[in-house]
Design a protein around this nucleic acid. Sequence first.
DNA 1: CGATTTTGACCCGCGC
DNA 2: GCGCGGGTCAAAATCG
Length: 328
Amino acid sequence: MDEKLKKPEINSIDKAVFSNQIMINPESSLSFSMPSSLFDVSCEEAADNQKSCLGFVDMLGVQDFNCPAYSTFDDLFQNITAQLVPLESQQPTSQPLPSPVPEYSEVVNTPATPNSSSISSSSNDDQKKNENEDQDEEEENQEKTTKKESKPKKKNQKREREPRFAFMTKSEIDHLDDGYRWRKYGQKAVKNSPFPRSYYRCTSTACGVKKRVERCSDDPSIVVTTYEGTHTHPCPITPRGSFGIMPETTTYGSAGGGGGGFSSSHFVNMPQMLHYQQPYFQNLMSNTTNTAFRQERPFCPSATSLVRDHGLLQDMVPSKMLKEPKEE
DNA sequence: CGATTTTGACCCGCGC
DNA sequence: GCGCGGGTCAAAATCG
């Protein structure tokens, strides 16, 4: 296991779809693409090891995703992400979502960029949510003590769901390391899928963030990770100068491995980061029938103060990661 | 020995 | 009301 950790994870990089947006295609180190089932984004190798992004059409509502040639993936990604941000604030409620996925349709991803007016409606929501969170917490504690005896919680009140964000990752690794420590608390067989779904909970006390991890039955190489909730604590810091894609089955390097290592500076509060991807998913959802892709409720930046990331891709994909494999 | 994973049982909401 | 499926609990097992 140590051995795994030591590796610069170059291979992992090749396999992963970072931040679910961009995949470094192992076949062609100078190209990347989205999972084909979603849509194709192609980048082309230009002369002199330059990369140009050709096909970000219609992602995020961007019709003309202008990516000239870049010498590094870093540059490329930076350009891409730079274009993500303005888009979000410009298009508050970009396109009306097709028809939201049933179960999660309460509210649908409205971009929750801080200066986005579209979240105005969520300010209430926000508060409510926070209250609910607090309440929930208390309730949970109480509940834990009384547990099953008095199971009927609040009957009428539907269980408030935390905001959820799902994203796909092309990876052999089921449990991608996102910088936080998770404890698995359940696993269930998924209907119509040979792959089980795993349930994880953030190990940090008082942080109720959960995540589910499952493989796409259509494409086993794709891992669907669904985050629920907002971390109430900073990303655990660990000294290792590595990035977070950890080798398979470690789920935190089994016991105690936890925080096995990631450079926290590059990880962000997941939900916070993910809301940048919302438009992606909006599009995804309208362009695909993939029901594994769901999100619900806009991101309520209630805990944003904890984070000071850019919310950009580079926050999640350390530039290092993107270059290293190339060099080798 | 503490932290984590495994796994069967239980709970709950929903559709019929 | 019943069955199904998703989600969670918690005891036992495992790991470092």
